[in-house]
């Protein structure tokens, strides 16, 4: 195993351990999954009551459109709040508690610290996604699922989580306090989500500002449309955020 991989895995394992022994991650998981479970029950009830009518339509929406995609859309909204709370202490917390220099003194470069912490948060988020997806999948044997659409929506969620986690880690790298990191990540996420709304209200639908916004890149994926441009947008945001976090952390050794 290469030194880079060993360092990154060591940081990831340390961060995962810290995530799983702190109550915050468990409370967030319990509350959000309870909410998603309740939403799933309501969506399922609505689908079952409409099922006969929908079946008569020639190209009517199925279980995936009526239950799974709306459920995942709720997960997206929850992620806007959950991800900043999960990432806020990743670096800002270490800085405040004085443990960040310990990682440097073990010879771990800033890039591996950032990547290790990022991967730990991503693992938690993917488990969260898996538990949410398990709800509709429990009926897969009884109901016809649109597997292609589900795969595209899952890909969209994975990319969204990857980008939001990177953004949260970057905010944590720049902020002096955890609360500031969470607030900055939340505001930036909402800004990215809504940055094109003013332009759209003015009737501009294909300007650069629309390309900048997150929602036009996620919605097609949630509805089963995969395009390279959308995938690239999320990859680009992730890479830029992680690069900024690394740069900021590397500069830490030179700061007063």
């Amino acid at each position: 195993m290469s030194r880079a991989l060993m360092d990154t895995m060591a940081v990831t394992r340390l961060e995962l351990r810290r995530l799983f022994v702190r109550p915050l991650a468990w409370v967030l998981a319990a509350l959000t999954l309870a909410w998603l479970g309740w939403s799933y029950t309501l969506l399922l009830g609505s689908f079952l009551s409409e099922q006969v009518r929908l079946a008569a339509l020639p190209d009517g929406p199925g279980f995936t459109d009526m239950v799974t995609v709306p459920l995942l859309a709720q997960l997206v909204e929850l992620a806007f709040l959950v991800v900043p709370l999960l990432t806020m202490s990743a670096l800002a917390g270490e800085r405040r508690s004085g443990t960040l220099p310990l990682l440097f003194s073990a010879g771990v470069p800033a890039s591996r610290i950032v990547l290790g912490k990022y991967l730990a948060v991503l693992v938690w988020l993917l488990l969260w996604l898996a538990l949410t997806l398990a709800m509709p999948l429990t009926l897969a044997h009884a109901i016809r699922l649109d597997w292609g659409k589900l795969a595209a929506a899952t890909l969209g969620l994975v990319l969204l989580f990857a980008a939001l986690a990177a953004l949260g880690i970057a905010c944590s790298a720049f902020a002096s306090h955890q609360a500031l990191a969470a607030a900055a990540a939340l505001v930036l996420t909402l800004l990215l989500w809504t940055v094109n709304q003013g332009a759209q209200m003015a009737g501009v639908n294909d300007g650069a500002i629309n390309w900048l916004a997150m929602s036009p890149h996620l919605r097609p994926l949630l509805h089963g449309l995969v395009s390279t441009v959308d995938l690239l947008w999320f990859v680009l945001l992730t890479v830029v955020a992680l690069a900024l976090a690394t740069r900021r952390l590397a500069a830490e050794k030179g700061r007063d």
Partner: peptide, 22 residues
């Protein structure tokens, strides 16, 4: 080569910073 620290260097900073949850 800051990675030399991993093998050759041990450091106890002032007030021993620790992760309280571990």
């Amino acid at each position: 080569q800051p990675e030399l620290a991993a093998q050759w260097l041990g450091w106890l900073p002032e007030r021993a910073p620790l992760w309280p949850e571990l």
